[in-house]
Design a protein around this nucleic acid. Sequence first.
DNA 1: TGCATTTGACCGTA
DNA 2: TACGGTCAAATGCA
Length: 294
Amino acid sequence: MDIRALKQEVAKQLVEGYRFASQLQILLSKNPDHGPNDLNRIVSGSGPVDELMAKILGSFDKTISVLGSFEPVSVAVPVDGSRNTSSGDSPAAAVSDGRCENSGDCRKRTLGVNKGKRGCYKRQRKSQSWTVESNTSEDAHAWRKYGQKEILNATYPRSYFRCTHKNTQGCRATKQVQKLEHNPEMFQITYIGNHTCNSPNEEIPAKIEPFEIAMDSDNTTCGSCTINDQIKAKLQDENCSDVTGTVLKEELEVDCDDHDRKYYQPTAEDLSLVWQDLAFDEHDLMYGSMWGNE
DNA sequence: TGCATTTGACCGTA
DNA sequence: TACGGTCAAATGCA
C-alpha cells in the first residue's frame, strides 16, 4: 500500500471520527448545564463528558500524528544543495532548528565564545496561530518556558513557552501566555504552530478544563470559524495552498511547514482546525480533489 | 546531577 | 528605531 492510499484511508477514518465528535459536541451544546439528558448519566466517572471528549479528540491527535509520520522526508529537494532535506522533525534538525540553520545570516558576536550564538535565530512566522482564553495556562501538552517580556501598555508580562519535545523530536510548537487586562484570573493563550511531537495524551490531567476559543466581542462569530478563516486567508496569502512543484513544496516546509500536521489541543474547536488543515494540505498538496471525490 | 525557570542580551520586523 | 520574540548563561529545585 502506498503512502497516498494510507493517507486516504487515515483521512477517511478522520472524516467519520470528526462527524462523531461534532455530533457529540452538538449534544453537549444543547445540554450545556448537563440537564435531564446529561451525558454524565451515560458515562460513568468524574467529568465524563470532558473525559470522553478528551479521549475522542486524543484519538484524532494520535491518528493525525500517524498521518504525519508518513510524510516523506525527502520531498523537499534543495535548490542550491545547501538546505537540509529533512522535514525538520528529526533531533538533528531540532538542534539547529530556528537558529543559525542558514549560517550566512548568523552574525558573530563579540560577547564571548558561547554568547556569540545568542540571539541568532530564525523568528517563527505566525502563519498558523490562534488564540484562546482559559482560566488556566496549562493544557494537555508539556511546555517549557523560555522567556518572559514586559509588553508595552500591558499590565502583565507575556510568557513564552515552547514544546518540551523541541530538542528531542523537533517539535516547533510554541505558545504565549498573558493575563487578561480586565480579568487577571483568565489567561490569553496564543498558540503558534502545531505539535509534531508524539506527546502522549495519557498525560492529560483529568482536572484540566477545556479551552474556550475567544469569542468576538459581539459573540456573533464562533472562534473556530474565525480562526479557520484567518488560517485560510493566511495560507492563501502565503501561497501555501498553491503548491505545484518541488521548489514550492520546499517553501511550504520552510514557511508553512506546520501546516503539514494540523493537530494540537484536544478541543472541538481546535479539531476543526485539524480538519481544516488536513483538507487544505491533502487537497492542495497531494490529491487535488480528494474530498470532492468522496 | 539533571531539568526547569529566570533574566538580560540580541535580533527580526514593522 | 522601538517593540516583541528568542537565545542561552545563570540560577533554582527536586
